[in-house]
Amino acid sequence: METPEQIRDRLLARFPAAKVELVTNPGTAAEHSLLLDAAHARDIALFLRDDPALRLDYCSNVTGVDWPEKKTAVSAPKTAVPTLVERVDPNALPGTPAPASALGSTRSTPANDSGNYLEAVYHLYSMALKHGPVIIRLRTGNRTDRVTLPSLTPVWRAADFQEREIFDLYGIVFAGHPDLRRLLMWDEFQDHPMRRDYVAPDDFEWEPTPHGDVHERAKGHYPTTEGLKG
């Protein structure tokens, strides 16, 4: 199978207006991924699916990832008010422009940049040619109001429930999804609980655990725990 660099070069030749970047993975797995811009994502996905050399007919896994701004990313979440996303009209134009900082040609893993976006990661394989994975990523403009990404469900039906799950738990609005409703939580629920700054409704008793950040959270929940040393 082609390397991600070759796929990127082919995509750039095929879609001159598109922005395709290589996101390197410094880990041992070294599965590098391609960051697509939202405006061309649907066309590129169709191309990847139907290109005779790739034939990525199988979208295995769709993941949402939250990358808050770097300074909040390193410290444990404080007792902040959960950020609520204003609902964006799903029929609005797909394609929020990528942030200006994201326009380099090759970038390192998202943990090293400044963050402040939500990400959808698609793992693509080919059942016909039995190769893979090709990993593509899409990023929103920010975490509050520019959270629309194009849905890839029309390309791969496998993304149907998984995009709904990401909409539910992360609040990414997938424009063009045929049935974008909450998947796991109830419809009246308003938060996006998989975001890093989500604070669960405080209704469980404190109990000792060896995990430091659970302690930290417990301290936040119980203001009268000066003596709590763990």
Partner: peptide, 25 residues
């Protein structure tokens, strides 16, 4: 009922009261 952030009410007050936790002084 399903509320915006949690169940409404989060527990039945006639049946359940949260235990008082022993804390180190």
């Amino acid at each position: 009922d399903f509320g915006a952030h949690d169940l409404q009410p989060p527990s039945n007050p006639n049946l359940f009261t949260a235990p008082v936790l022993p804390r180190k002084a």
